[in-house]
Design a protein around this nucleic acid. Structure first.
Length: 944
RNA sequence: GGGCGGUUAGCUCAGUUGGUAGAGCACCGGCUUUACACGCCGGUUGUCACAGGUUCGAGUCCUGUACCGCCCACCA
């Protein structure tokens, strides 16, 4: 055992950290126990991509919940923190596709089955990376319950949810305009499209007049409603108005119209889509075009006749007030097309190339076609004007390709019926956002939510559980694979897979065994807290809320803590191109997981982005080292015979310094606990830092040293050791959630407590571990204001003497004699009673109380408590420097006095302010005046 | 266009219910004080973005302005 008491000179995380994680894992320290009599506390880990590596966002989003879990474990909860990984459909598929491309092949060459098998194999291999990195960080998850979104039982949950929603009419399939990535070759949900403001051009193109309105073209694109169970409602008001106008103008169609003769100029940012135009729209109230509605124009380059329709959507103030309508390639036009029963002409294909419908431009890339078409228009004299125009363009969030709106058959979730309860649950406080402002963002989105496109034309993911019969046209949606159609023909399964967030949305309950009524589900659902990043509030949090309420019968979590973005030291977003990415693995290698975690916690001010600076990281690494060295100090002072940690003695018989430190450590426990309860990780970390370094190490350790000397009285020594150990043990336990590795290492070197309840054994009772040691509670019996005021006085006097010495340049080795004046009798008694401490920490040979100032050139002449009056001796110091310093101080005091006097002279202040505040202000005022007068006097003395 | 946040010491940020402006880093000076130089002791640094208002009193509450940032959005 005694070799355990010898710590190395510094903390070496590389040798310590892995040892303890292995110990925790193998001893079952993180295992949840449904049989336990302890109250449950549960969280699910936001599943990282199975093929991902730990980035700074993960580090934060795992450190904070880990702090909570470790804390809750110590407060006696049965903690479940359920880990797992996400198959991350499109992201993972893209990576593997890139690998294939490097090998000179592609997924089509491989075939679906082989491709999926390949992705699966790579996922399995890659899975170890992220999970081992989580261990490096110290995440205290229950690995025995690890899940993967593509696991069989989770896939079963996915199918159950899909089928149920379908049966209830909340999932439908239909042909609508969707966001299409021409590179990934799949549909995307609105959330997977990132809009970026870009410099573009607004082309003004003249569409010449053709003649009067013809019947709407009957041929062409499919009926948008064809396969829909039910489509989104069409804008009825605008629709009626538009139709009425057309009819009305139709009557006047025969009348010659000057405007019609010239044609109409439309403005567009995407001239290539004009080939698919099937109308031109104007606002119904726009007088400029009133006569035109109902007539037709001729589409340049193509020659097709286009009706002019009136629609409320058109903004008369934008461009020319006339809009070309391309129902197949623009979401607004799609809706407008439905309102006016326009056909869809598809001119851009799923590959981003112009289709056969594009005539001479067929086969060209859409952007090349834009150039070519502009050229042609110019040649034909139809391009009237080109303006620079900034507008936002949608890009694929995965590959940054410009998204092409395309008409396509997809599966959708009708979301409004699900959103309602999810909104209500937050409104009525059943689920609470922290910081609460995020609820607004949540409401904002939920109130304006659109149907969710859930099908993806990918291979990696949960395949849509729908089967089609080519014989009779029957569609079967079922949990189990049907053998054959009712007509006896073979069935063909839908080739699409589901949006990866569909399965993520079930995560809080699918991981616990749903749809079976498992013990875990009964005990751990709803989970206590969800801690996750702001970037996935919509993707994930909102969907978990909706699906959890719908299927698990309750909200998925009682509290959502939204973490901030981690930025670089100058508040810039981290990005590879800027080269300012902080790699958490590198940081942990350099300074250890404990210091890294502590830094993240200390910087995690709610609602604010985190600027991760090297200075802070370094500072907290040194803090870890500080704790290490305090422990060395404690251990080296333990008698070798001590095998058991003695209980902390009752404060009555203890010296002031002991009573003081016990009081303070009790307050620390209260403060840290309160901070954690409010999710103020920054406040908790700050409090620990300050106490451990600037109270415990700087003061208590220094003050206690004499008590530990060999010469010290035996009983005194034993009491000091008991208190020191009691404080040290509590400090380690309070710091443990933040710095799990170093605290376990140090805690294990302490002698075990006599009290079994303090021992922290794992559930199997085999091993002691700080992870299960009880969380320190405030001790009311340790409250001791008298000890606090004594220590405050000692600290002030000692600091004042040190200041004088430093300013006079008196080396610490030189023992001084000191005269103190103006101490009141009570304070004199305190100082006398604690003279040893003062002499030791201030480096004094002696001090005495004097009535007046002795003119002794070898001593500091005076020291006035609370006034930090440092009077240098003539001849010993630089007179000019000192007078300058005094003048500055006097100026400052005068200013302060002015404001205090203003306050006190104000009758209303005396009337209305709290009496304590008034008294305090008066005291402050008189103290300041006394001090200024004294400084004035000294200044006069010093000045020639 | 809508929403949210920020503007406090050279840098990055705290500032609880309004009551003498704080921390870390940086900087300056001094220290082989037997846990720690990843240390110890001391020190310097602020018209709290701007303009009004409420109040005896505002970094803190209200209104407006400026600048920065983020999110959402179907303006061709």
């Amino acid at each position: 055992m005694s070799d355990m008491r010898e710590l190395s000179k510094g903390f070496d995380h590389a040798s310590v950290d892995p040892k303890w994680y292995e110990f925790w894992e193998s001893s079952g320290a993180f295992k949840a126990d449904p049989e336990s009599s302890r109250p449950p506390f549960s969280m699910v880990l936001p599943p990282p991509n199975v093929t991902g590596v730990l980035h700074i966002g993960h580090a934060l989003n795992q450190t904070l919940p880990d702090i909570v879990c470790r804390w809750k474990r110590m407060t006696g909860h049965d903690v479940l923190w359920l880990p797992g990984t996400d198959h991350a459909g499109i992201a993972t598929q893209n990576v593997v596709e890139k690998q294939l491309a490097d090998e000179g092949t592609d997924r089509h060459a491989l075939g679906r089955e082989a491709f999926v098998e390949r992705v699966r194999a790579w996922s399995r291999q890659s899975h170890g990376t992220i999970t081992s990195q989580m261990r490096t960080l110290g995440s205290s998850v229950d690995w025995s319950r690890e899940r993967f979104t593509l696991d069989d039982d989770l896939s079963r949950a996915v199918r159950r949810v899909f089928v149920t929603l379908y049966d209830e009419g909340l999932i439908y399939r239909g042909k609508y305009i969707v966001n299409w990535c021409t590179r990934c070759r799949t549909a995307l949900s609105d959330l997977e499209v990132v809009h970026e403001e870009q410099a573009g051009r607004l082309y003004h193109v003249r569409y010449p007049a053709a003649g009067s309105v013809a019947d709407p073209p009957a041929e062409g694109a499919a009926d948008p409603q064809a396969e829909g169970v039910a489509g989104p409602p069409a804008g009825s008001g605008a629709d009626a108005a538009g139709v009425a106008d057309v009819a009305e103008s139709g009557g006047a169609a025969g009348r010659p119209d000057a405007a019609a003769g010239r044609g109409v100029t439309v403005a567009t940012t995407r001239p290539e889509t004009m080939l698919g135009d099937t109308a031109v729209a104007v606002h119904p109230d726009d007088d400029r075009y009133r006569g035109l509605v109902g007539r037709t124009l001729r589409l340049p380059l193509v020659g097709r006749e286009l009706p002019v329709v009136a629609d409320e959507f058109v903004d008369a103030k934008f461009g020319t007030g006339a809009v070309k309508v391309t129902p197949a390639h623009d979401p607004n036009d799609f809706e407008m097309g439905r309102r006016h029963d326009l056909s869809q002409v598809v001119v851009i294909g799923e590959d981003g190339l112009m289709t056969a419908e594009a005539g001479p431009f067929a086969g060209q890339d859409r952007f090349a076609a834009r150039e070519a078409i502009v050229e042609r228009l110019e040649a034909e004299g139809l391009l009237e004007r080109v303006e620079d125009h900034r507008h936002s363009v949608g890009h694929c969030s995965r590959c940054h390709t410009v998204v092409e709106p395309l008409v396509s058959t997809q599966w959708f979730v009708r979301i409004k019926p699900l959103a309602g309860p999810a909104i209500a649950a937050v409104k009525d406080g059943h689920t609470r956002f922290v910081p609460e402002n995020w609820a607004r963002t949540y409401f904002e989105w939920m109130n304006n939510i659109h149907d969710w496109c859930i099908s993806r034309q990918l291979w990696w993911g949960h395949r849509v559980p729908a089967w089609y019969c080519d014989q009779c046209g029957n569609v079967i949606v079922d949990e189990d694979t049907p053998a054959a159609c009712r007509c006896g023909a073979a069935l063909r399964q839908d080739t699409d897979v589901l949006d990866t967030w569909f399965s993520s949305g079930l995560w809080p309950f699918s991981t616990m065994g749903w749809p079976d009524a498992t013990d875990d589900l009964a005990r751990y659902y709803p989970t206590s807290v969800m801690i996750t990043g702001l970037d996935i509030i919509f993707f994930w949090v909102a969907r978990m809320m909706m699906l959890g309420l719908k299927f698990a019968g309750d909200v998925p979590f009682m509290v959502v803590y939204i973490t901030s973005l981690v930025r670089d030291a100058h508040g810039r977003k981290m990005s590879k191109s800027k080269g300012n990415v902080v790699n958490p693995l590198q940081v942990m290698e350099d300074i250890g997981a404990d210091a890294f975690r502590f830094t993240l916690a200390a910087l995690a001010s709610p609602g604010m982005d985190i600027s991760l600076s090297e200075g802070r990281l370094r500072g907290y690494r040194q803090f870890v080292n500080k704790i290490w060295n305090v422990s060395r100090f404690v251990l080296m002072n333990l008698p070798p015979t001590l095998t058991e940690r003695p209980p902390v003695p009752p404060p009555d018989g203890l010296a002031t310094i002991h009573r003081w430190v016990l009081h303070r450590v009790s307050e620390l426990a209260a403060d840290v606990t309160r901070a954690l309860e409010g999710y103020r990780f920054d406040v908790a970390a700050d409090r620990l830092y300050h106490f451990i370094w600037h109270e415990y190490a700087d003061w208590y350790v220094e003050l206690v040293k004499p008590h530990l000397r060999d010469e010290a009285d035996d009983g005194d020594r034993q009491r000091a050791i008991a208190v020191l150990l009691g404080v040290h043990d509590r400090v380690l336990r309070l710091a443990h959630p933040f710095m799990p590795f170093v605290t376990e290492e140090l805690w294990q070197t302490l002698p075990a407590p006599a009290d079994a309840a303090e021992d922290g054994r794992t559930p199997d009772g085999e091993a002691r571990t700080i992870t299960r040691a009880p969380w320190p509670r405030p001790e009311p019996a340790w409250t001791d204001d008298q000890a606090v005021s004594v220590l405050t006085l000692l600290q002030e006097v000692i600091t004042a003497v040190r200041t004088v010495r430093a300013e006079l340049g008196v080396p610490p080795s030189r023992r001084l004699r000191l005269g103190i004046e103006h101490a009141d009798p009570d304070e004199r008694a305190v100082l006398d009673g604690h003279g040893d401490y003062v002499r030791r920490l201030a480096g004094l040979e002696a001090f005495e109380f004097v009535a007046s100032v002795p003119a002794d050139p070898d001593t500091v002449r005076r020291l006035v408590r609370r006034m930090r009056l440092h009077l240098p001796l003539a001849g010993v110091i630089d007179r000019a420097k000192e007078t300058g310093r005094l003048r500055r101080e006097i100026d400052k005091l005068s200013k302060q006095l002015g404001s205090l006097e203003g306050k006190l002279d104000n009758p209303r202040f005396r009337e209305r302010a709290d009496p304590d505040v008034v008294a305090e202000t008066e005291a402050r005022h008189s103290a300041a005046r006394r001090r200024r007068d004294q400084l004035d006097e000294v200044l006069k003395e010093l000045s020639p």
